[in-house]
């Protein structure tokens, strides 16, 4: 069974809050972004945009192959 290597890259204050970047997780079958965040212990409340390679996706997106996931923090005004 081919193992999917998921690399999570954190941007902005997420790097500071979660104290690591990137992190790597391995999966043997398709998995949602939501599940990946849960396992990486990253709160959805902190995430505004999610990119899988060059595409913007939502948390219900199924990851089916090794890839890089970029997480961008919530954005306020200023």
């Amino acid at each position: 069974m081919k193992i999917m290597k998921i690399s999570i890259v954190l941007e902005g204050y997420l790097k500071d809050k979660y104290s690591f970047s990137p992190i790597e997780l391995n999966y043997s079958k398709a998995v949602t972004i939501h599940k990946i965040l849960e396992e990486a212990k990253i709160s959805s409340a902190d995430i505004f945009f999610i990119k899988v390679e060059d595409s913007l996706v939502k948390e219900d997106y199924f990851v089916r192959k090794s890839c890089k996931i970029k997480l961008f923090p919530i954005i306020g005004g200023g």
Binding site: E11, G12, Y13, F48, F49, K51, K70, F72, P73, I75, G76, G78
Partner: peptide, 8 residues
């Protein structure tokens, strides 16, 4: 800080 998320 918002430039990178908006740009990407």
């Amino acid at each position: 800080a918002v430039v990178r998320p908006f740009y990407e």
